[in-house]
Simulated scan of single mutants.
Amino acid sequence: MKPVQAGMLAFKLIVTGVLLWFLFRKVDIGPVATRLVSMQAGWAAVALAVLLGQLLLTGVRWYFVGQLVGAGIGFGLASRLILVGQFFNQVLPSSVGGDGVRAWLLSREGISIRHALVSVICDRAAALVLLTVIVACTLPIVILSGDAAIPYAWPLAIALDALTVGGLLFLFLWGGAFSAWLISLPLTRPLGVVIRDLRLVLLSSAKSLWVVGLTIVVQAMVVMSTYFCALALRVEFGTAPLLMLPIIMLISSIPISFAGWGLRESAMVAGLGFAGISAGDALAISVSFGIAQILVGLPGVVVAVMSSYGRKKPSARAVIRPAK
């Protein structure tokens, strides 16, 4: 392991440890453990099924992203590698570590490493952009409802909405010229390629509508899976906590902790606390959701073991876009 990688791993372990230590000091773990061991199996199974379903839809979205950026990824291959990536997201230090595994395994299937990386990066970036849009829409609703006491709510909502709208307008109106300029400079060429292809993914064709629609459905299913975890724990969950969940998921996606642990729990306790959910209940929901993510990633182990990724396969190939 290189010194930089070792330093990042140490940093994430420290962040995870500090966040969990702080939570455990503030929250009585006894009731949390009691709730977890007495979960209702039916609702827990529904939560797992919904979470697995959103993974499969994520694979379909990645298929469309691959078509738009020039990587020929089949439905079956995309679905299998999404499951593998989900597993490694839970066991590698970063919550996006599975994305690197996806790109590497895709390159072993005959896709060029450049197309593989761009498809994975654009898939992740498109999901984050659209999650930000969802948060920009839901945050004002939460504030107007008056059911959540969020500090500095309106300045936060106005700033987020302005940045989101401004960013999308910039990408639509000037993204092409800006990416071309970045590509012309050797040091910024990779960033320019990502911006160019992200614009293709989100704003270019009917396939872009599929990407947008699937992302909205996927995020809604993640929210509903968390909601079903709350039902399994017998926690009352109203509209305000539901609308807070996209904000929590956006914060949890920041890759500064080990597989998202610690950061997700802190965001869940703080965010749901604004919506009236006790810290213990919020922590139980977050831990149960984290366990559910691990469980739905287990099929990825089977796929990784049963599939032969040791050699390149000629059946998959990159789709080269015509020069414009």
Rank of each mutant, 00 (worst) to 15 (best):
G85D: 05
Q86V: 12
Q86R: 01
Q86E: 06
F88V: 06
N89R: 06
Q90F: 08
L92S: 14
L92D: 15
P93R: 11
S94Y: 03
V96E: 09
G97Q: 03
G97V: 04
G98R: 03
G98M: 02
D99Y: 03
G100L: 05
V101C: 02
V101Q: 08
A103F: 06
W104Q: 11
L105E: 00
L105S: 02
S107T: 09
S107L: 09
R108D: 04
E109R: 15
E109W: 08
E109P: 07
G110M: 13
I111P: 00
R114G: 06
H115A: 03
H115M: 00
A116R: 03
L117W: 13
L117N: 15
L117P: 11
L117F: 14
V118R: 03
V118S: 12
V118T: 11
S119I: 02
D123G: 00
D123C: 00
R124Y: 06
A125N: 10
A127R: 01
A127D: 08
A127E: 07
A127W: 01
A127L: 02
V129W: 06
V129T: 08
V129A: 00
L130H: 14
L130E: 15
L131P: 14
L131S: 10
T132F: 05
V133K: 11
I134D: 13
I134R: 03
V135Q: 12
T138H: 08
L139E: 05
P140R: 07
P140N: 03
I141D: 10
V142W: 08
I143P: 09
I143G: 06
L144D: 06
L144V: 09
S145C: 13
G146Q: 02
D147W: 08
A148F: 01
A149C: 12
I150M: 01
A153W: 01
A153Y: 05
W154E: 10
W154K: 07
P155Q: 04
L156W: 04
L156M: 14
A157M: 05
A157N: 07
A157G: 09
